[in-house]
Measured scan of single mutants.
Amino acid sequence: NQASVVANQLIPINTALTLVMMRAEVVTPMGIPAVDIPRLVSMQVNRAVPLGTTLMPDMVKGYA
Rank of each mutant, 00 (worst) to 15 (best):
M21N: 08
V49I: 11
A34C: 09
Q2S: 14
M59Y: 13
P38R: 03
S42R: 14
Q2C: 15
Y63E: 05
V6H: 02
V20Y: 11
R39K: 13
A34G: 12
A16N: 06
G52Q: 05
I13F: 08
V27R: 06
Q44R: 06
V6T: 09
S4G: 05
V26Q: 14
I32P: 01
D36I: 05
Y63F: 12
K61W: 07
R39F: 14
V20I: 15
V49E: 01
L55D: 00
I11M: 06
M43S: 09
S42Q: 08
V6F: 02
T28W: 04
V6W: 01
P38Y: 05
P12M: 05
A16Q: 15
L55P: 00
I13Y: 07
P50Y: 12
V60E: 02
V60K: 00
A24Y: 11
D58S: 09
T15W: 04
M56H: 09
T28S: 14
G31Q: 02
A7P: 01
A7W: 02
E25Q: 04
S42A: 14
V49P: 02
R23Y: 04
R39P: 03
M21C: 03
M30N: 13
N1P: 15
M21A: 05
M30E: 15
T28R: 02
I32N: 01
A16R: 05
G31D: 01
A48R: 10
P33D: 15
D58C: 15
I32E: 00
L10H: 11
Y63L: 14
E25Y: 03
L51G: 14
N1T: 15
L51R: 12
A64N: 09
M56E: 10
V27L: 11
A3E: 15
A24L: 12
A24N: 14
I32C: 04
M22I: 09
V45L: 09
G62P: 06
D58E: 14
I13D: 06
P50L: 06
V6D: 00
V60G: 01
Y63H: 07
G31Y: 02
V60D: 02
G62N: 14
L17W: 02
M56Y: 12
P12V: 06
A16M: 11
Y63M: 08
V60P: 01
A48M: 08
L17E: 01
T28H: 06
L19Y: 08
D36R: 04
A34W: 11
A24Q: 14
V45N: 03
D58T: 12
R47I: 10
V26H: 11
Q44H: 07
N46M: 06
M43H: 07
P33T: 13
V27H: 04
P33G: 14
A34S: 12
S42H: 11
V41A: 09
T28D: 15
M59L: 08
D36F: 04
L51T: 12
A64D: 14
R23S: 13
G62H: 13
A3G: 09
Q9T: 11
A64V: 11
G31E: 02
R23A: 11
A64F: 06
V27A: 10
T18R: 06
L40C: 04
M59N: 08
V45Q: 00
V45R: 00
L40S: 00
M21Q: 07
G52F: 06
D58Y: 05
I13M: 12
M59W: 14
G31C: 03
V20T: 10
L51I: 14
G52K: 09
A3Y: 05
P57F: 07
K61M: 12
Q9G: 06
R47V: 13
N8I: 07
K61L: 15
M56L: 07
M22H: 00
N14V: 03
A64W: 03
A16Y: 04
A48D: 15
V5N: 01
T54G: 03
R47G: 13
A16K: 05
M30I: 14
P57M: 07
D36S: 06
V35P: 06
M56V: 10
L40A: 01
A64M: 14
L17T: 00
T18S: 09
A7Q: 00
T54V: 10
G31V: 02
Q9F: 09
A34K: 03
Q44N: 07
V5R: 00
M22K: 00
P57Q: 11
I32Q: 00
S4L: 02
S4Y: 03
Q9H: 11
I11G: 01
M21K: 03
M59H: 09
P38Q: 08
A24M: 05
G31N: 00
L40P: 00
Y63V: 04
L10F: 09
K61C: 08
M59I: 10
M22Q: 01
D58I: 05
T28F: 04
L55T: 02
M43V: 05
G62D: 13
L10G: 08
A64R: 09
A64L: 15
N8H: 14
A34H: 10
T28N: 08
K61S: 13
P57G: 13
N1Q: 15
Q44E: 07
R47Q: 14
I11H: 00
N14F: 13
M43Y: 13
E25C: 04
R39A: 10
R23N: 10
T18V: 12
A7I: 04
A24S: 14
L17N: 00
A16D: 06
R39H: 06
T54R: 03
N1V: 15
M21Y: 09
A16G: 04
Q44S: 14
M56K: 08
I32W: 02
K61V: 12
S4A: 06
L19P: 12
A16E: 10
V27D: 02
A48L: 09
V6A: 07
P12W: 04
N8W: 04
T28A: 10
A48C: 14
P50V: 10
L10I: 13
Q44M: 09
N46P: 03
M22C: 03
V26L: 07
P50T: 13
T28I: 04
E25L: 03
A3P: 12
M21L: 07
I37A: 06
V20Q: 10
P50A: 09
D58M: 12
I11E: 01
D36P: 01
L51H: 10
R23W: 05
L19N: 08
R47A: 14
R47K: 13
P29I: 10
A3M: 09
A7D: 01
N1S: 15
T28V: 10
V20E: 13
M43D: 04
M30T: 14
P12Y: 07
G52Y: 08
T18M: 08
I11T: 01
V45H: 00
I11D: 00
N46I: 10
A16P: 14
M43G: 06
L17R: 00
E25V: 03
V20F: 06
T18W: 03
G62W: 08
R39S: 10
A24P: 14
R47C: 07
S42Y: 10
K61P: 10
R39W: 11
G52L: 05
N14H: 11
L55R: 00
A3K: 04
